[in-house]
Computed example of a mutant assay.
Amino acid sequence: MGKEIIPAGQSISIVILFIIGSSLFMGTSGESGNSSWIAIILAVLLTIPLMLIYARLHVLFPGKNLYDMLIAVFGGFIGRMFSCLYIWYTLHLGSLVLRNYGEFSKTVALTSTPMLAPMLIVGLLCIWVVNAGLEVVGRSAKFLLLFTLAVIIVVQLLSIPKFEYQHMKPLLDSGWGPVMQDVAGSFTFPFAEIVVFLGAFTVLPRKGSAARVLISGVTISGVIIIGVTVRNLLVLGPEILSSLYFPAYVAVSRINVGDFLTRIEGSSAIIFITSLFIKVSLCLYVTCQGIARVFKLESYRSVVLQTGLIMVCMADFIYKDITQMQYFAYHIYKIYALPFQVFIPLLLWITAEIMAHRAAGREEDVQ
């Protein structure tokens, strides 16, 4: 089959929907109360240098994905070991996102339906679209992003009458300590999770579009998450906000325009489903690419169905309950994810730069 190439616009749409996936409804780490929006701004600023490193890897290894880079730099054995770690991470991340949706359905939307049913439906849809190819995911993401932005803007405007600006005061009342904890939490979830996109770098055009895609995607998604976080804070207040599992859903449910326009939280929930659909699809695609690369399969499509079903089954038993899910997301994940998001990519980048410098030196000696 021909090689897939996705235009920059579609790639940016994938990045934005991937980042806002779960965080739009679960919220980000909220230790700092009414100063949480400051933590998100700092997390975005901290993520941008990391995106430049990811983009530099695309320049050093044009036409290669994360697994190709690892094997090229660290050799067959160690490179495949690192690749197996990323196969686990992307499979696990996809399962976590599916479980977020399962808990949301069980808690809010479909309280009488077994949690496995909605997760299986989304999982099968992701299997179908990944089997069709990442170009289909890209076209879907571009359309779904326009719909998502439209709904977010309308909901933001309708929320304005419910804003209580005293919830913003006093700013930094607990000091910078909780803010720094939230910076670490927001950096790893959701922004630095875009390390998954390195596994799909082969779909980017060879010319330097990676920096544009990653930085634009992170910046736009950061603005969206900051806007939603501030809205939730102004509508609910920091005390109520910290006690909720899905604060965005509750905040939107407060909208009441003249007793005529009410109960619009259902339309807001659709955004959650569309964005997590893209996030799970990308995780599934990158997991299958890794399996195909490590085991030298002809095509990743031969393992999409099996891997997708494993992801759904894993999502069903990965947590005991919603309390455990929230604790892992806000406390354990920021430690667990750092090696995948920062340490291994940094090691890969530094080693690749040394190899490129030595290769350039040898070429000069030959001349």
Rank of each mutant, 00 (worst) to 15 (best):
I225Q: 10
K142G: 08
L70Q: 04
T90H: 09
N65C: 04
C313V: 08
I87P: 01
P247W: 07
G290M: 06
T287K: 02
E364S: 03
N256E: 11
I194Q: 04
R301G: 07
Y165L: 12
W176T: 05
K320Y: 15
S302C: 03
F201P: 01
L241Q: 14
E363R: 13
S11E: 06
F295Q: 11
S243L: 13
I225D: 01
Y336F: 15
Q156Y: 06
H331W: 08
M180E: 04
R56I: 04
I41S: 13
M180F: 13
S275R: 03
E103M: 04
P118S: 02
I350D: 02
V252K: 05
S36M: 11
S242K: 14
I226L: 07
N232S: 06
A211E: 11
L282D: 01
K3S: 13
S242L: 07
F340G: 09
P238T: 05
L241D: 05
S242V: 01
L145K: 05
T323E: 13
V154R: 02
V235S: 00
L125G: 11
L204H: 07
S174N: 09
P161H: 06
Y249I: 09
T111M: 13
A337F: 10
V250R: 08
A248K: 06
E363Q: 08
Y86I: 13
V294F: 03
W349Y: 13
S174F: 11
L305G: 02
R254K: 13
H92W: 13
L157A: 08
N131G: 14
M51S: 14
L125D: 08
K207V: 09
L24S: 08
G361M: 14
E265N: 09
N232Y: 00
Q306H: 11
I38F: 12
I12Q: 08
L171C: 05
S299V: 12
I270W: 02
V304C: 10
I273K: 00
D365T: 07
S159D: 04
I194Y: 05
L297K: 15
I255P: 00
N256H: 05
L338R: 03
F25L: 10
V196S: 08
I335W: 14
I226E: 04
V183I: 15
L110K: 06
K64P: 04
V154H: 01
G21C: 08
I220V: 14
S186G: 07
I160T: 02
F77R: 11
Y89V: 00
F74Q: 08
E265S: 10
L124T: 09
S105Y: 01
F25Q: 00
I194D: 02
I5D: 00
P178W: 04
G222F: 00
S36L: 14
S302P: 00
L42P: 00
A356M: 14
L110D: 05
P247E: 11
F328E: 12
T287E: 07
P190H: 12
I153Q: 03
I264H: 06
